[in-house]
Amino acid sequence: MEEKLLNLLADLCDDEEVKSNPDEDLFESGLIDSLAFAELLYAIEENFGVIIAPSEVERSDINTANKIIALVKERMRA
């Protein structure tokens, strides 16, 4: 699941770096913008059945690959 999500992210960011550096701030570095963020939320819903509402989480809680993985995992368990 982690690998699938990382691949998804790398695809969205158009950059393989997220895989090697999963703690990088995706918004700060410009890897994810508002458009990619929307696509990410859709992709998470499609692939993992987890719906995350756009206003639900603070950007600071979902700004690295690791934080996104942790959030999706937590939701899949719930």
Binding site: S34, F37, A38, P54
Partner: peptide, 11 residues
């Protein structure tokens, strides 16, 4: 606007 219109429209 980003959270309640743009992102939702894009999704």
């Amino acid at each position: 606007f980003r959270d309640f219109i743009f992102t939702r429209f894009m999704i």
